[in-house]
Each structure stands twice: as C-alpha cells, then as structure tokens.
Amino acid sequence: MTVVSQDEKRFVIFNLSGENFGIGVDRVREVVNTPGIALVPSEDGLLEGIINLRGNVVPVMNAARLLGMDDKDPEDFASVVVVETGNEVVGFLVEKVVAVAPLEAEPVPSGGTANNVNAEAIEGIARMDEDQLVLLMNVDCLLKK
C-alpha cells in the first residue's frame, strides 16, 4: 500500500453506492455520460458491456462489483469513466461523476476502509470539502484480476 504523492494532484471523483471514489486525472481519458452500452454476457458479472468510443469498441466494467461492494442493480448508473491502463482502454460504469478536483492523498488508515470495499484496490484516501472521504482507486491493481 503506497501513497502516490504528498503533493496535490487532480482526481476525477465519482459516486458508487453512496461512497466517493477518485481516479487520478492522468489515468482518465474521458468521461462518457449516458452512453449506449451494449450488454455483453459475463459469468462473473464484472463485465457490463461495450461502448463505441469514436469507432473503437471499449469494454465497460462494473466498478461496484470490481470493488467488491454490495451488488446493486446498476440501473441508474449513468456515467462511464474511461481509463487507460497499459495498452488497454477500459470504462468503469459509475453512478455519477461528482467533480474533478485537486486532492491531497493520504495513506489508508490501518483499520481499512468502510463498506467492505476490496482494500487492495484502494491506494490512498483523501478529504474533500472538509467532511467527505474519497477512496483513491488503484486502477492497475483493480484490473489485474
């Protein structure tokens, strides 16, 4: 578990089941709102479907399931955060994108994080607007599975 940097860095902050998550803007290619997802069958339910990103077929993962959170029907989830990892481009289906803001990353407290989130995929935490907690995602770690 490493802390990326003590310096301020910009994050895309989004909402999943009442929890705030952040991905560094350097990893985010773009955010697509209300995309037309073509559902693709997936045995473990991690894969949601595919979207057309300017002529390229991009897979969309169910971020909540990937993070090991409560399985909630993603019916109302309306945004896809498209990230680059290695040579792949992948989308994460999220509830909604809240903000793009600079955050100061801190190490994850030893007690872990709330809500049964898969701890391995979180590489740090940050505070937003004094009282809100943002879990910073390690994209590569998340997709290794």
């Binding site: 069958p41 894969l47 595919i50 897979p59 992948v90």
Partner: peptide, 9 residues
C-alpha cells in the same frame, strides 16, 4: 473484435 480484455464470449 470485442477486444483482448473481453476475449471469446
């Protein structure tokens, strides 16, 4: 193709 990440379905 559906891409490497998805593979064969």
């Amino acid at each position: 193709s559906l891409g490497r990440l998805i593979g064969d379905v």
